[in-house]
Each structure stands twice: as C-alpha cells, then as structure tokens.
Nucleic acid binder design. Structure first.
Length: 120
DNA sequence: TACGTGACGTAGG
DNA sequence: TCCTACGCCACGT
C-alpha cells in the first residue's frame, strides 16, 4: 500500500464535517425526532439542511447513528426509501412510541427535539 | 477539472 | 394559502 499521504488529509477533513452532524444525531433521545434544518441551524447554517441529508446517507451501516430520527420540517419520513426497507424507518420510530400515519409523524411538534435548545 | 445531483429550507409571486 | 424558484455544500461521474 503506497500511502501517498495527501489523500488521508482529505478523508479526515471530510469525516470531521460529517462527524459534527453525527454527534448531534446521536444525542437525539429515543422517542424524539429532529429535522434536517434544526440540525443544520445548530451547526450554524440553515442553508446546510441538504448537507445533513448527505451525512445521513453516508451514515449507512453505522447503527450508532439513529438516522430514522431525522425527518424534514413537515415531520415527513422523506428518507425512508433510503433505508433497508421503506417500512424500516417507520417501524423503528413506532417502536420508540411514535405514531406515524402516511409517512408523517403525528404530534410532530410534541416529539420535536431541537438541538439548539436541548444542547444549548 | 468541471458539471450534475441531492433524505431541505426559505422567499417570493 | 398554495405553488414555484433559488440557494447552500459536498459527493459522484
């Protein structure tokens, strides 16, 4: 393995970026859900909501990251199709006490977890 | 190296 | 009040 070296630097920088998002997602307690925008806003960029989605996509395979607790602003399970099964996301949320109807979380505001307030 | 795409959100019409 | 268009950053091709 010819470790060129420079490549390692690029990878590490990338992981640090995602690790920041992962850290917030991991802090989401069971039975609670957060939104891409809330996490992005906590990190300092409201416009970075899409980046949070990318981070979730890259988090596949890491069971320590509850990506199923991250939904869009409307409480809609927009990313369920990216899970092993379309029902996997809903199933996990229901196991945590949440109720989902038509891919939408019921009482979303009640179960909403805002990192900007919880983590302060 | 450059272009296109993407699990969103906000603003304007 | 609802729909459409634009912006942001990172990754893949």
């Amino acid at each position: 393995m010819e470790m060129t070296g420079t490549n390692n630097y690029a990878m590490k920088s990338k992981e640090n970026k995602f690790d920041d998002i992962y850290d917030v997602v991991k802090l989401i307690p069971a039975g609670k859900v957060s939104s891409y925008g809330a996490i992005a806003a906590y990190l300092g960029g409201k416009r970075g909501a899409r980046m949070v989605g990318w981070a979730m996509n890259a988090s596949h395979g890491d069971s320590t990251i509850p990506a199923h607790r991250v939904v869009n602003r409307n409480g809609l399970l927009t990313g369920k199709m990216f899970f092993e099964s379309p029902d996997a996301m809903q199933n996990k949320l229901e196991s945590e006490g949440l109720k989902i109807i038509k891919d939408q979380i019921q009482d979303f505001q009640t179960h909403f977890w805002d990192p900007s307030k919880e983590l302060l």
